[in-house]
């Protein structure tokens, strides 16, 4: 009973959006939005977390005994801080830092607010991983750098970083996978994202297809991430 110029979706062929809503119980746009939230938290969490983590790692490497800035106090403080944060489960950290989140972001929900606990959680983890990478740099290389009159910053930027880069990329990859797990929890508490989707819409509504879809998405994502990390690392290492 259709009139010309008024074509129903069914007549236009396969309607993906309708099928998706029907099969998974949510709109496709909702999934895209959740993916966006996850990538937002993951991306910024990684960038800020890696920056903070690198600074912590630098203190751990440079201030340790025999380091170029040997300083027991600075090393001790950072070392203990890293251990404390790393021994706390993320869900505890998350609620524990709510007051801080409130001060920094102004609210305790939403993807941006979740960046505060995510960075606090992931930076010590990345710091440990990067510390190990930096410690792998042969002391001989550093001695050679000193002997040619390099300043401490030149030693870090021109010798330690390039030498540790390949190993640090792998460390970052490992850290990113850990961060992804944390974003799921953060999302559930109030940040949105794929994890939130799986728990709220998939688990609590007994929506098995959606639950499975989110798992598949996460598995594929982690696989791709690891592949990328391995590739980049191998490329950086290819000439050794």
């Amino acid at each position: 009973m259709s009139t010309p110029g008024n074509i129903t979706p069914a007549q236009a062929g396969f309607d993906f959006a309708a099928w998706f809503k029907d099969f998974f119980g949510i709109k496709f746009d909702k999934l895209l939005g959740s993916l966006g939230d996850t990538l937002y938290m993951l991306g910024w969490g990684l960038i800020i977390g890696a920056a903070v983590g690198f600074l912590l790692a630098l203190v751990l490497v440079m201030c340790r005994r025999g380091g170029l800035w040997q300083n027991r106090v600075a090393y001790g403080i950072v070392n203990v801080y890293v251990n404390i944060v790393r021994s706390m489960p993320f869900i505890i950290t998350l609620v524990f830092v709510f007051p801080l989140t409130k001060v920094i972001v102004g609210k305790t929900y939403g993807s941006t607010a979740m960046l505060v606990p995510l960075v606090i959680y992931i930076s010590p983890y990345l710091a440990r991983l990067m510390e190990n990478s930096l410690l792998e740099v042969s002391p001989g290389i550093i001695e050679a750098a000193q002997a040619m009159g390099a300043t401490t910053w030149q030693i870090i930027a021109r010798f330690m970083l390039p030498e540790a880069l390949s190993s640090m990329v792998l460390a970052l990859t490992t850290g990113t996978v850990g961060l992804l797990g944390a974003t799921a929890m953060a999302g559930y508490v109030g940040g949105g994202g794929v994890g939130d989707l799986a728990l709220t819409y998939g688990y609590q509504r007994y929506n098995l297809p959606l639950l499975i879809l989110t798992i598949v998405i996460l598995v594929v994502f982690v696989q791709l991430l690891q592949l990328l990390g391995n590739r980049v690392s191998a490329r950086l290492r290819s000439h050794r």
């Binding site: 001989g140 290492r237 000439h239 050794r240």
Partner: peptide, 18 residues
């Protein structure tokens, strides 16, 4: 002063990947 003193090492201590 160190720039006026070269140093050579047993294990070379070169950047292997460069």
């Amino acid at each position: 002063l160190r720039r006026k003193i070269g140093m050579v090492f047993q294990q070379f201590n070169l950047l292997e990947g460069k």
